[in-house]
Design a protein around this nucleic acid. Structure first.
Length: 577
RNA sequence: CGGGGUGUAGCGCAGUUGGCAGCGCACCGCGUUUGGGACGCGGGGGUCGGCGGUUCAAGUCCGCCCACCCCGACCA
């Protein structure tokens, strides 16, 4: 490819809307252009990277005996109504009606279509196990797209779906994906960690997320450096030291004027926050199968802890959780700022498992300006549910070994789910087992955001001059900078080098523009191909062409008749993982 | 959805009290230059986000709307 023909444009100045470095560089280097919020076009440079990433994905999926298919982006809403997700999922789903007035859906993911395929295809245990995958566009109307390609609304995803006759089969395919996904990321030059995660809208049993650790990430993760425990904060648990046990003291009411927060209360009564109970109210939205209504949820944690909303939502089987308004709290009989579960009727109460073990706590009196001392679980109140609903913080104890957990930020580049029979049950994907009995197909689903992966690689591999692509996914292996000579025609040498490299399967990007050397070198650094070959009179007089790696400052001259061999061996070396 | 910000040429920006719509980069032509973002001369490019209002006159003042960015809520 000749640079003068490349459909692209490098920019000297960073567009003001780009904040994270991957976004800035991908736009400046002419890889992507934004069309709308979270909607991007991939120009040739980016699409070549995308294709190389997708090739790696296909190789790894095929190695698991996966078979590539292609499922539709536009889908009739009927199958989404069958699984209930048409109603569960909110504004994030793209919906419209076709000319006949039928509800249609833009694919956010493809479990429903897979299940529809399976019920029309799989009849016998002899057809299982199976693995199908595709690389297809998804539309998720994210409330807040940001950070360039990191968080978008339209994106290409690798998603694969495992189909098994039994749970052991699912475990095998899940493990195979667990390893294959690490290989994909590694081959793309991105190091990731897998953490336990929430199953969210997918439902199902077990899930892991693959996280690229970076301060710009929006997910909070907890790691134990002692034993290796790792989890997304949404599901992370902790070791909770048992509070000192004391005899129950008589309940007493104390005036606490103006002390409506834990800090004020603890200061006013001169007790540690750990001796108080914190009341948090949510309105939970319950889907049709669970009643189809909103209901108040009263969560209680110890005063020195925070509520983990994901845990509460999962426990209560609420599809959605939002903070309750003061009016909604009052309607339950509780008093905002002075609320407690003592004496409340008709409200769903969920209590953190540390609270029943904490004696003589301070809790609200449900009376403005008053609290209760010496509240004891069991004697003074009880809950509908006692479970772990605390949010883990940096430094809290590891649930496995007790060592302090470390909090880090990350971007989720992939995830794997054990779906089980949720979709097979809903869409009646049954097969006949060896004994002639109907059984639901057991499914898993696995996904990687291709553009997000590209963006994370760009985020990780750059310097102050521009991008530094890993050789395995670089748009071209070689950037040829051709500089005109005074006494000789360097274009002739460039043409022969280009032809030789192309014939060897090492297609170069040839900067044939009439630009100054500085412009060409700077653009080469900005675009970040792994190797630069400079064809110039100076290099020719030194015996050939100059070779320099993007990731290194050193360069040396290669004789013309050895260029192909040298480029190949170097690129091969760089491509190894 | 709430809070904040920004919309003027492809990109970055200026535009005073309301009075001819500009600068740098990029782009086109000619010439000089040629190993780290060269120089001279000459050019092309605008629904000043949109609609409405005030005014002799609106990029500028007023109202409504839209888009994009950031923070939060939310989210795989």
């Amino acid at each position: 490819m000749h640079f003068s023909r490349l459909f692209s444009q490098t920019l000297r100045e960073t567009p003001s809307e780009a904040e994270v470095v991957s976004h800035q560089l991908l736009v400046r280097a002419g890889f992507i252009r934004q069309l709308g919020a979270g909607i991007f076009s991939y120009l040739p440079l980016a699409y070549r990277v995308i294709n190389k990433i997708m090739t790696i994905m296909r190789e790894e999926m095929n190695a698991l005996d996966g078979q590539e298919i292609l499922m539709p982006v536009v889908q009739p809403a009927d199958i989404w109504k069958e699984t209930g997700r048409f109603y569960q999922i909110g504004s994030e789903m793209g919906r419209f009606t076709d000319k006949n007035g039928h509800d249609m859906v833009l694919a956010m993911t493809h479990e429903e279509v897979v299940a529809d395929l399976v019920r029309g295809t799989i009849r016998s245990y002899r057809q299982l196990p199976a693995l199908i995958y595709h690389l297809q566009t998804k539309w998720r109307d994210d409330p807040r797209p940001r950070a360039g390609l990191i968080r978008v609304r339209e994106f290409i995803m690798l998603d694969s779906y495992s189909l098994d006759a039994d749970w052991a089969g699912l475990d095998r395919q899940y493990s195979a994906h667990y390893e294959a996904y690490f290989r994909i990321f590694k081959r793309c030059g991105l190091s990731t960690v897998a953490v336990r995660s929430d199953t969210g809208m997918m439902g199902g049993k077990e899930a892991h997320e693959y996280m690229y650790l970076t301060p710009i990430g929006e997910d909070s993760l907890l790691f134990c450096d002692a034993c290796g425990y790792s989890a997304n904060r949404q599901v992370a648990s902790m070791h909770k030291p048992l509070p000192e046990q004391e005899d129950s003291l008589p309940l007493e009411m104390v005036a606490t004027p103006g002390a409506s927060s834990i800090e004020e209360l603890a200061a006013f009564l001169d007790v540690p926050a750990a001796k108080t109970a914190k009341a948090v109210f949510f309105m939970g939205h319950f889907s049709a199968e669970n009643g189809g209504h909103e209901a108040l949820i009263f969560a209680v944690v110890r005063g020195d802890m925070e509520v983990n909303e994901t845990k509460v939502a999962n426990l209560m089987k609420a599809g959605d959780l939002r903070p309750a308004t003061d009016e909604e709290i009052r309607a339950s009989g509780a008093v905002p700022g002075y609320a407690s579960p003592v004496g409340l009727k008709g409200v769903k109460v969920v209590v953190d498992d540390l609270v029943p073990r904490s004696p003589n706590m301070v809790a609200g009196a449900n009376l403005a300006g008053y609290h209760l001392r010496n509240v004891n679980y069991g004697r003074d109140f009880s809950a509908d549910l006692v479970a772990d609903i605390s949010a883990v913080r940096d430094g809290d104890g590891c649930p496995q070994c007790g060592a302090p957990l470390r909090l880090a930020r990350g971007v989720e580049v992939g995830n794997i789910f054990k779906l089980g029979t949720r979709y097979s049950d809903a869409l009646h994907c049954n097969f006949l087992d060896e004994n002639g009995n109907n059984q639901p197909v057991i499914m898993g689903s696995y996904g990687i955001g291709v553009g997000r992966l590209l963006a994370c690689v760009a985020e990780e591999h750059n310097d102050d001059r521009g991008l530094v692509w890993p050789a395995a996914i670089a748009p071209y292996p070689v950037h040829m900078v051709v500089l005109p000579g005074r006494e000789m025609d360097t274009g002739v040498i460039a043409a022969s080098v280009e032809a030789a490299l192309t014939a060897a399967g090492l297609e170069p990007l040839v900067d044939d523009r009439e630009e100054s050397a500085g412009v060409k070198f700077n653009d080469a650094d900005l675009i970040g191909l792994p190797m630069r070959l400079t064809i110039s009179e100076r290099a020719f007089k030194q015996g050939g062409v100059e070779m320099k790696l993007r990731a290194s400052a050193e360069s040396h001259v290669i004789p013309l008749d050895q260029v192909v061999t040298a480029v190949r061996s170097t690129i091969d070396l760089l491509s190894q993982v």
